[in-house]
Design a protein around this nucleic acid. Structure first.
Lengths: 220, 220
DNA sequence: CCTTATTGACTGCCTGGTCAGTTATTAGTA
DNA sequence: TACTAATAACTGACCAGGCAGTCAATAAGG
């Protein structure tokens, strides 16, 4: 019956299966209320097995968060490249990605929930996430805004000091969906389009880029 | 020693004191990890006393959330009045209030955290909050936007369909501070000013209200 | 002395963590 | 191929501590 090497393959796959199950349980119930027996049951194993791969509940939680936030870290790389072309186009592309990730991807959403819920128990986790994911993202956005201003595409605005204002609608939609569930979710594409529209008007200062702010030679 | 009627007064004050202490503990540790012994200690009483006033931990939690979210409910009333004067002025006033409440007031912030963290355990609580607080607020904002459009002050925009876009920066600052603490908090007044600036440009579609959209007699 | 708010010791359950034992797989031997 | 030994993954019964909830006893008003 058993394929050769199946035993070894199990050993390689187990941690991933456990993390997967743990994620679901932690996301549903939070760290404290999650029972390792439930995690084990979901993974189709027993509690004892969990302890073959993870030394404690806290370690399992940390490993789970680490593993599940990997996509965010990878995504970030795309934004940090040197900006080229229209700044607004860069922003459009970026926010389309970010929206898909932070609002439409349940995984990332739940990561946010857990970070918010467990800060006081795992302050280091949140600090790392700030330093390695969100901080760089804010800086990258700031660079794009400056680039847009230099190009004459954007007017100077508070977005330079607070790039947070630019992705606020994404966070908004993310927390909205976290709280009220998929049933009351805001309509994705239309909302994103509205966000980008308001953004463009806000940054350029007119329904079309204001000519008086634009130096011919600087426009790419 | 004892003032006349002190006994009775204690009985009247106890529930409030307990709720106060419970709020701090629930906010710090979440529902599951909070120990009623700790709540009692913080309130300067014993666990037994809690059960004289609240039938269970869950009831205490619900009572705490109810009590602590009262300011939000009261604040809402101000917005639902019939709009008068400049729509942008209404928005400015409203967001100044909302910012003070959702970002600078620790209480309200923590309410948000708990709602996010405990949705799956207390779905009714969140649903009520949506129906009684946030829902009406969105509708009220939508009315202000429509009013601004009718007046010729605002151009038609996605803000009519998604008033969420307008207060997104407030939510953003709220969650930011929830996650990263007061140390990394975004600078309040400047951020608010930037928000309102981008908002105005976005809604009116120009660096100054576009004259072609504005009827002289209507400007505040 | 009666009333009543409060106590604090107690119970029972729950759950993180342990570990001796079981079972499946592979290696070795003839 | 058949049998045995060695190994490694996994189990499940168990313990210890912690905590929600209880209640007879206490003590502070009036």
């Amino acid at each position: 019956m058993a394929v050769a090497g199946q035993r070894r393959r199990r050993k390689e796959e187990r941690p991933g299966e456990i993390v997967e199950a743990a994620f679901e349980e932690f996301a549903r119930s939070g760290f404290a209320a999650t029972k390792l027996d439930d995690v084990a049951a979901r993974a189709g194993i027993t509690k004892g097995t969990i302890y073959l791969y993870f030394p404690s509940k806290e370690d399992l939680f940390l490993a789970t968060m680490q593993e599940m936030s990997r996509p965010s870290r990878e995504h970030l790389a795309a934004l940090t490249a040197a900006p080229q072309g229209s700044a607004m186009t860069i922003l459009r592309t970026h926010f389309a990605f970010e929206y898909a990730q932070m609002v439409e991807d349940r995984r990332t959403r739940e990561i946010i929930r857990m970070l918010l819920a467990e800060v006081s128990r795992f302050p280091d986790l949140v600090e790392r996430w700030r330093a390695e994911v969100i901080g760089p993202e804010v800086e990258a956005l700031r660079r794009v805004v400056r680039y847009g201003i230099e190009r004459g595409e954007f007017r100077p605005s508070a977005a330079e000091e607070f790039p947070h204002l630019l992705f606020a609608p994404v966070i908004m939609a993310c927390t909205w969906r976290l709280m009220f569930g998929d049933d009351h979710a805001i309509d994705g594409p239309a909302y994103l389009a509205g966000h980008l529209d308001l953004l463009e008007r806000g940054l350029t200062g007119g329904s079309r880029p204001n000519p008086s702010l634009q130096t011919a030679g600087l426009s790419e």
